[in-house]
Simulated assay, not measured.
Amino acid sequence: MDQVSGSSIGVFLIAAIIIIVLAIFLTFVPVMLWISALAAGVRVSIFTLVGMRLRRVTPRKVIAPLIKAEKAGLKLNTNLLESHYLAGGNVDRVVDALVAAHRANMELSFERCAAIDLAGRNVLEAVQMSVNPKVIETPFTAGVAIDGIEVKAKARITVRANIDRLVGGAGEETVIARVGEGIVSTIGSSETHSKVLENPDMISQTVLKKGLDAGTAFEILSIDIADVDIGKNIGAHLQTEQAEADKNIAQAKAEERRAMAVAQEQEMKARVEEMRAKVVEAEAEVPQAIAQALKDGNIGVMDYMNYNNIKADTDMRDAVGHINQNDEDEPDPES
């Protein structure tokens, strides 16, 4: 009995080990993916799939696009797809772009497509845009005509991707900026805003002649003006601002002149006060000088008396003059 139980346990352990080994084998070796590839007509060996595992490449990321390419009639191999995967590219998107280009009868090699993908461009979107052009709408761009009236215009740009210039070519932002610059230049060269309103097509015609798609990843097919609107009277606004600025400058200069006049007046008053102080100081020295002259015998008593008489006569004349001046200033009651 014990012998039978021991043999049953041994069989169970062997079966468990076999199951574990098979699970590890199937996990490491994608047998189901290999069978799917063979069923789709893609000849790939099981050792190739194992090698992908060893090179840290997900086999499904390579084999599934390879099956897609084979069904579309494209001749690719695992080495090309695996190298692009290891370079950090999107293998599935590259194959989709090649299939789309093949169906549209476009000449596009795998190397070119892989280079575009590695450059950060969406190669599938570029191929689709080459077949079906894209419409880019610009925001309202304002320009000022020569008569000073602001004109706002919005344009729709129909572009087609240029596969040959996708690597290193400028993007949509550059195209929009160049078209906006052309709109501003065309409006600014118009004599009046009414000419722009009457014939908005001259904006698109002028902009198209500039070759704005040079150096970009697109080919401009057409530029259509979607909307035109009138903005502010910039000329009048600038004239008003200039007049206000001139007025402020004039006021500032007048204030400067007034301040200078006040300063000069204050300076004159200071000088007058200084002169008055000197006169008072000189008058204070006169009695001392007379006393010293009397003491030294330079003048006599009669000279001093004559000086006082002359001074008194002068004071009297000044007083009479002030009285007459006041009488002339008072209004006549009879009048």
Rank of each mutant, 00 (worst) to 15 (best):
I187G: 00
T174M: 05
D227Y: 07
Q3E: 13
G6T: 12
A291K: 15
Q325F: 07
I203W: 03
A217Y: 06
V127T: 04
P200N: 04
P65N: 15
D332M: 05
Q242E: 13
V286E: 06
E219Q: 11
R317I: 14
Q251Y: 09
R103Y: 02
A161R: 00
D92W: 00
A155L: 10
L294S: 05
Q3A: 10
L22K: 10
E107Q: 12
I183V: 01
S130L: 03
R271L: 06
V21M: 14
A293P: 02
L66K: 01
I183Y: 08
V207T: 02
V179N: 07
L49M: 07
F140H: 10
V272Y: 11
S189T: 05
V127L: 06
A97E: 04
G300C: 05
Y304R: 12
A145R: 02
N326I: 07
V196Y: 12
R271P: 00
A64K: 12
E125W: 06
N105E: 11
M275D: 08
E219N: 10
L54W: 09
E198R: 10
V184I: 15
Q266W: 13
S130I: 07
L80Q: 15
I67W: 01
K152V: 01
L22V: 15
D229L: 14
A245Q: 13
S45M: 03
S45F: 01
A261Y: 13
I136M: 03
I299K: 02
L38K: 12
G180P: 03
D315V: 03
A23K: 08
E70G: 09
N306C: 08
Q266A: 14
G168M: 08
I9H: 02
V179E: 05
I203V: 01
T58L: 08
A23F: 12
M302E: 15
Q205E: 13
F28C: 12
V44D: 06
M268R: 13
Q288Y: 06
E283H: 12
